[in-house]
């Protein structure tokens, strides 16, 4: 038994089963489905959901919103981060804006966004605004921590600016960007569904969560939550793969 559970592949399964068991026991003790459904009833609901065509449309739309918000924040965060990392004045100019963005409560942003945008764009905007400061900070830190010795070397050998950017700054910022982007992607999924709950687009996981609340469908709530967790996990794995291929 000891050998069995210490082998890493089985260990993971064992840990997962352990926590499902804890969940099952807790559900049995509480014994009220409305507070905490059992794992079995949740899986049953999940099983029902996955055979409905609309589930996939819903997942597709939510994924689209999360990834669009995430990519926008990456694009602008990295671009602006590069300039801010290279120039102290631009850094000081943008710093207050980033600090404010970082501290605004997510609910305020969602409600403001509801005034400004139509349903489907609210989650995209909110996700962008939540992720952007993290990506910006990672990029600025990465640029500022670039090896000064290598930059001096480039200056001596008169390497052109574009190649310095590509060969020195970009590569040396990869580890910072990697951790920044991975944590941002996780946040992106959470923020998108929160914004969807309030903006209620037609096809959205957040709208499904809202419906579960309205119809007191706790099993549905749990099932959709599991879907978000799985999606978040899958996309994180994909991002890690991409970074593994990029890194040296």
């Amino acid at each position: 038994m000891k050998i069995f559970i210490t082998q890493s592949k089985y260990k993971k399964i064992f840990i997962m089963l352990f926590w499902i068991l804890v969940w099952e026991i807790a559900a049995l003790i509480i014994n009220r489905d409305i507070y905490l459904p059992t794992p079995i009833s949740t899986i049953k609901t999940l099983y029902d959901i996955i055979f409905i065509k609309e589930t996939y449309i819903t997942i597709l739309y939510s994924t689209y919103r999360t990834i669009l918000g995430f990519l926008l924040s990456c694009f602008l965060g990295i671009l602006l981060g590069y300039f801010c990392g290279l120039n102290q004045f631009i850094h000081d100019l943008f710093k207050p804006l980033i600090n404010v963005t970082r501290t605004i409560p997510i609910m305020s942003i969602i409600i403001i966004a509801l005034f400004w945008f139509r349903g489907t764009n609210v989650p995209v905007f909110v996700t962008f605004l939540m992720c952007f400061p993290i990506i910006w900070t990672s990029t600025v830190t990465a640029i500022k921590n670039t090896d000064k010795g290598l930059l001096q070397m480039c200056k001596i050998y008169k390497i052109n600016g574009f190649r310095v950017l590509k060969s020195i700054y970009l590569y040396s910022s990869l580890p910072h960007l990697r951790s920044g982007m991975i944590s941002t992607l996780g946040i992106g999924w959470k923020v998108t569904s929160a914004a969807e709950v309030l903006s209620l687009p037609k096809y959205a996981i957040g709208s499904q969560l809202y419906d579960s609340k309205v119809y007191l469908d706790i099993n549905g709530l749990f099932a959709w939550t599991i879907i978000i967790i799985i999606l978040s996990f899958l996309f994180e794995m994909m991002l890690v793969k991409i970074f593994d291929n990029l890194s040296y």
């Binding site: 010795g149 290598l150 001096q152 070397m153 001596i156 008169k158 052109n160 190649r163 060969s167 040296y248």
Partner: peptide, 24 residues
């Protein structure tokens, strides 16, 4: 310039490190 430390680019091979300064 030969610095006190080698100052090579870690993510490039030895060949590419030398090639890097000659590209332009």
């Amino acid at each position: 310039y030969v610095f006190q430390e080698p100052r090579l680019i870690d993510w490039y091979s030895i060949y590419d490190n030398i090639d890097f300064v000659l590209k332009d």
